[in-house]
């Protein structure tokens, strides 16, 4: 009997653990498993307030249940008139003062953590990246390094990285739940926040402020690599030769088509101030196409031929003469071999 109970209990515990694990969401996306300084700070407050508030809820529910069990109209007492109580000074004082104390308990750490997360005292000595939010993609400019890239943000593990964010069109919001809380990307003024990731990995980022039809497809990734890998990546990105001819002849034709269709009016390869469209320097290393599609050749061809189908309301549609499928395949061949660095998404966490 005892063994049977023990087994049942083990099964129950196992189920509970599984439920909690799956209930916390996808690793490197969920805010419930913090892997950075900002998300960890927020999590402290989330836990504190949840515990206090749940206690309040439990107290309310205990009184509520007692009221419902004890004071319902009883059979045979239909004409019973309860005592008309005006109030009770002592009781009312209790449920005024205790909440005030609870608010103070929550207010102090809230204030400390908020000021801590807003610090910028070591910004000058840290890595600074200028981020531009665009409908519906992200532009990253590594300050002092002459490196521009899009969609995949490479940062070193454990280091504070300052993000200076501005929008080129409407308001966006930069959110990598596992690493840090969000901050709005306004067209008016540059907002600065820092992020610091504790573990290597590919983290999911989201736009959190409604910005148009493809708001939900404006995903990006933060790729956290070791410090050496980061240095390597910086060096590789800096030494890119934008005019380099690809080895493959199909890719060479693709490069010619890329130029003939004037793609580089919007899409720079290598360091360039052009940021009308995403910078394609390390396009072959991208985790996703258009922010959310698997980076296969077929998907890329479809993206080039009919962008509207993949990202409604995007600003690339109609900006270039119609490209047929064959041409698109050549361009895709060219773009997918743009891998200036050995350091890619696979490097993170290995």
């Amino acid at each position: 009997m005892k063994g049977w109970m023990g087994k049942l209990r083990a099964l129950f515990l196992l189920g509970l653990v599984a439920l909690i694990l799956s209930g916390c969401g996808r690793e490197n996306l969920t805010a419930l498993v913090p892997k950075g300084y900002g998300s960890e700070s927020s999590m402290k407050l989330i836990i504190l307030t949840t515990v206090i508030m749940s206690a309040v809820f439990v107290i309310v529910m205990i009184v509520y249940v007692i009221v419902l069990l004890r004071f319902r109209k009883k059979k045979g007492q239909e004409n019973f008139i309860p005592k008309q109580v005006e109030g009770h000074k002592g009781l009312e004082a209790v449920w005024t003062i205790i909440p005030i104390i609870l608010v103070i308990i929550m207010a102090v750490p809230t204030t400390l953590i908020s000021f801590d997360l807003a610090k910028t005292n070591d910004q000058k000595d840290s890595i600074n990246i200028d981020i531009t939010g665009n409908q519906y993609w992200w532009h990253f400019d590594y300050k002092g390094e002459e490196i521009q890239t899009s969609q995949d943000l490479y940062i070193p593990v454990g280091k504070k990285v300052y993000l200076n964010m501005l929008s080129s069109d409407v308001t966006h919001s930069f959110w990598v739940p596992s690493i840090s809380g969000k901050m709005d990307v306004n067209p008016d003024n540059t907002n600065t926040m820092y992020i610091q990731a504790y573990e290597e990995g590919v983290y999911w980022g989201k736009c959190a402020e409604l910005c148009g039809p493809s708001h939900s497809l404006m995903d990006f990734k933060v790729i956290v690599v070791s410090e050496e890998e980061y240095e390597q990546w910086i060096a590789d990105m800096k030494s890119v030769d934008p005019k380099a001819k690809p080895e493959n002849s199909v890719a060479q034709e693709g490069q010619e088509l890329f130029e003939a269709n004037n793609c580089m009016a919007c899409h720079a390869i290598g360091s360039s101030p052009i940021a009308t469209g995403p910078n394609l320097t390390d396009f072959g290393n991208r985790t996703k196409l258009a922010g959310y599609v698997e980076p296969t050749k077929e998907n890329l061809v479809e993206w080039i031929v009919n962008p509207e189908k993949i990202k409604p309301g995007n600003l690339m549609t109609g900006k270039y003469p119609a490209v047929n499928k064959e041409e698109a395949e050549k361009i895709a061949e060219y773009l997918l071999q743009l891998k200036p660095s050995e350091i890619g998404p696979e490097s993170a966490g290995k």
């Binding site: 989330i46 307030t49 608010v103 908020s114």
Partner: peptide, 18 residues
């Protein structure tokens, strides 16, 4: 309860707009 939770500013960096 959740009102107090979203009022907690640094925690709201996670809750906001979700």
């Amino acid at each position: 309860m959740t009102g107090v939770m979203v009022a907690t500013v640094a925690a709201d960096y996670q809750y906001h707009d979700t």
